[in-house]
Write a protein that binds this DNA or RNA. Sequence first.
DNA 1: GGAATAGGGTGGCCGCGGTA
DNA 2: TACCGCGGCCACCCTATTCC
Length: 207
Amino acid sequence: MVSSILVVTEVIFDIETKKIFDDIEGYNPADLGISIVSVYSRTVNEKGEETEGEMKSFWEDDLAKIWPMFINADRIIGFNSLHFDVPALMPLAPYDFKKLKHFDLMDHVKGALGFRLSLNAIASETLGHGKSDNGLNAVYYWQEHSEESLAKLLKYCEMDVMVTKEVYDYGQKNGQLKYKDKWNTSRIIEVDFSCPKVVIEPQMGLF
DNA sequence: GGAATAGGGTGGCCGCGGTA
DNA sequence: TACCGCGGCCACCCTATTCC
C-alpha cells in the first residue's frame, strides 16, 4: 500500500527598489531598479503545518538565483505584488514571471472590503505589531550604500517578508484578518486563503 | 511623487409635506 | 396655488490611500 503525500510549496517574497517614483519619468515599477529581494521558501504538509522553511535574500547581482525558487512554487505570496513587485521584476525574469501562481494578499483584502489597506494597518491589528520601517527609507539605505545601511535594508526587507508570512498564516488559519478603520474601531475582514494541495505519489523503485 | 481607485464632501436637482 | 424647507439621490471633484 502506497500512501499519497499532500504538500504545498509556498514562496513569500518582497522587493526593495533603488529609486522612488520621484526619480523616474512616468509610472513603471520596472524603471525603479531592484536593490534586494527577500524570499521565504517553505513546504506545508496536509495539516497546514510548515515542515521546512528558509529565508534568503538576494542583492541585485545574485538575482539569477531566485528564478528557480519561483517557478517551482505552488503559490507565490506577496503584498500588492501583482501591481508592484511583479511588474518591477518582470524585465529581469528569464521567463514570463506574471504567469506564475501569484497570490496577492492586498488583492484578496480589496476583494473582501472593496478598498485597499496597507500591510502595516493589517499587521498592527492582526498580529499586534507592524512593519519596522517604511519603503522610502529602504531606498535611502540603498543610496547611502554603507555597510550599516545595507544591513538595515536587508533586515527591513526580510522583516517585511516575515510580516507578510505571519499575516498570510493568520488569515489561512482563522479565515479572517483585522484592521482599524478611520474611527479607530477594530474591524474584521473575512478571507479565504485556502490552497489546493498537490498530491505527490511516492516514486516506486525503478532499480 | 507616479497611477489607480475608494471615500468623503459639496452642490444641484427633484419630490414631498407644511403653511399662508 | 404658491412658496419654503427638508430629505434623498446623483454627479462631480478633491482627498487619502496603496506600493517603493
